[in-house]
């Protein structure tokens, strides 16, 4: 571009523009920072964050999973493997006839779509806000029932509880979302904390409008964050 094509401005305008530019950066210095210092502080996750799965229990400690394999069937990434087994009547693992004997999710394949959560008839599998799932080999990325099943008090398990980086407090605060498809989620139970939330930590009342009544559009209620 030749100089003749450039807009001709007088010297004072040019110098004034320089200072205008510097004022922008000066103001920026006093605005809040957007960076979070990740391992030290964590940003609050959205309510319906699609994080790691857990297998829930009933408040009495029974496993919710009945080994029906609907989650495995609906999984678009085919990363869930379930094998059910008949309950021992003397010592049942779950309230029903069968329970999930083997339950494995390959989290390298999982696309965190949440279809397994929607398919589950008993709300056995839900998603938490946990997202730290890095592993050093592929075998470790396959979460088995040992890691997926929550403790009787509702706390999820950590893949490497002995690792120094494992933040076990984070597990306690973990909470996922669940659709109220379980029988306890009906409208009759509104306001009654009759069902354990996703990870079982901290009882939470069911969402308004669940169940048989006509549900209002959730988009209208929530509004953008």
């Amino acid at each position: 571009m030749s100089e003749a094509q450039q807009p001709q401005e007088d010297l004072f305008t040019i110098i004034g523009n320089l200072f205008r530019g510097m004022r922008v950066t000066w103001r920026q210095m006093f605005l809040p920072r957007v960076t979070t210092e990740y391992p030290k502080t964590m940003r609050e996750k959205p309510q319906r964050f699609h994080g790691r799965h857990v297998l829930n229990r009933y408040p009495d400690g029974m496993e919710k999973c009945i080994g029906c394999q609907l989650c495995a069937g609906v999984c678009p990434a085919q990363c869930i493997y379930v094998r059910g087994k008949d309950n021992d009547p003397a010592n049942p693992m779950s309230p029903g006839e069968r329970y999930g004997y083997v339950y494995e999710i390959n989290l390298l394949r999982c696309i965190f779509c949440g279809l397994c959560v929607e398919a589950c008839p008993t709300e056995a599998i839900t998603m938490t806000s946990l997202f730290e799932m890095s592993v050093t080999n592929r075998e470790d990325a396959i979460y088995t029932k040992k890691e997926l099943l929550v403790e009787p008090d509702g706390t999820p398990n950590h893949m490497f509880p002995d690792d120094e980086l494992a933040d076990l407090d984070e597990l306690r605060a973990a909470d996922g979302w669940m659709r109220a498809t379980a029988p306890q989620g009906r409208a009759a139970f509104q306001g009654v904390p009759g069902w354990t939330p996703s990870a079982g930590v901290g009882l939470r009342p069911p969402e308004a409008g669940q169940g048989n009544t006509v549900a209002p559009d959730p988009e209208d209620e929530e509004g953008d964050e």
Binding site: T25, W26, Q28, M29, L31, P32, R33, V34, T35, E37
Partner: peptide, 13 residues
């Protein structure tokens, strides 16, 4: 640090 401040970052911490 100063450049980070001017870009809403934290810089080395």
């Amino acid at each position: 640090k100063v450049v980070a401040d001017m870009q809403s970052r934290l810089g080395p911490m």
